[in-house]
């Protein structure tokens, strides 16, 4: 059976620049797959090639076994939001959706349902030029859902959403996946993606650096060590340092990078030290991300 999304050996050159380099990954139905990478890593170019907007230099990208432009019923197969909602500023939100609905033979009732779903019914008559980024994102999401598609491709969908909107989006994406749909989501909000994604594809400089279930990737990453606070932490730090541990911090709180909580606890007991706090620090998705992509090579943006 074909994967919901299959990218194989995808490569794209823009003149001398190699934006995507022999990239391969798959996305399966019933899973939310996070697509991560620094700015300029080639995420958006990859999604645009997947959706037939950019022609690959080589390689292929298919949705349910077919290239996107060859799909017989694209609206009911794939829904996508790219670069936020792109709108004509003089057209109302409702009319924006209606232009897309009419092109695919979808009635106005579905448009109204979606406006309710994304909480834009009250603003739907207003010209889209006055919409906030969050409203544009929600309208874009409504457009992606017009055909109740089997596959969703979302590029930074949480941009501009308030915490309530982000939580709604997370629950909504989980619900879509539980219904058997495939969701591919690129995002910079790593903590958010850590709570949403089942699988993760990480790319850097156009190449895949990791593709696995999120839990596998997290467990593969280096542990975060232990944080200890209290009156005797300075002495504890000295003892651990002399024993070869990597210790950092100040006289009131230290972090031991390469020892477990149990190992540090035994040292504390052996030397009868007084502490007030001992907290294991787990590796976050952010730590893993920086480890895999080489420490934020994309720079600030």
């Amino acid at each position: 059976m074909a994967h919901a999304i299959e990218v194989a050996g995808l490569t794209k050159h823009f003149g001398p620049v190699k934006a995507v380099d022999d990239l391969s990954f798959t996305v399966d139905e019933g899973r939310v797959t996070g697509f991560l990478g620094p700015n300029g890593a080639g995420k958006t170019t990859t999604l645009r090639m997947l959706l037939g907007l950019v022609n690959p230099t080589s390689g292929s990208a298919t949705v349910l076994g077919q290239p996107f432009p060859a799909l017989r019923d694209p609206v009911h197969t794939v829904g996508a939001v790219l670069d936020g909602g792109m709108l004509h500023p003089g057209r109302s939100g409702r009319n924006h959706l209606r232009t897309l609905a009419k092109a695919s033979g979808i009635g106005s009732q579905r448009v109204e349902e979606l406006l309710q779903l994304v909480a834009l019914a009250d603003a739907a008559h207003r010209r889209a030029g006055g919409y906030s980024l969050g409203m544009r994102q929600r309208l874009g999401l409504a457009a992606a859902l017009l055909g109740d598609p089997k596959v969703l491709v979302l590029d930074e969908p949480a941009n501009g959403l308030d915490p309530q909107g982000i939580r709604w989006l997370r629950d909504f994406l989980r619900q879509l996946a539980s219904e058997g749909r495939a969701v591919l989501i690129s995002s910079h909000q790593l903590a958010e993606l850590g709570q949403t994604a089942d699988d993760v594809v990480v790319i850097a400089k156009g190449r895949s650096v990791a593709q696995a279930p999120l839990q596998d990737i997290m467990s593969r990453a280096r542990g975060g060590g232990v944080r200890v606070a209290g009156p005797d932490v300075r002495r504890l730090g000295d003892i651990l340092y002399q024993a070869g541990a990597r210790v950092s911090g100040d006289p009131t709180q230290i972090t031991v990078a390469d020892r477990t909580g149990e190992e540090v606890g035994r040292v504390i007991a052996e030397h009868q030290l007084v502490i007030s706090e001992l907290v294991p620090i787990g590796a976050s998705l952010e730590d893993v991300y920086f480890e895999l992509t080489g420490g934020g090579a994309g720079g600030p943006s």
Binding site: L51, F68, V75, G79, L82, H88
Partner: peptide
């Protein structure tokens, strides 16, 4: 050209890829 100027060509082509 309005489609390209305002970027609506992207959602349009997602609905009508041909």
């Amino acid at each position: 050209t309005n489609e390209f100027r305002h970027g609506t060509i992207t959602p349009t082509l997602l609905v009508v890829p041909d």
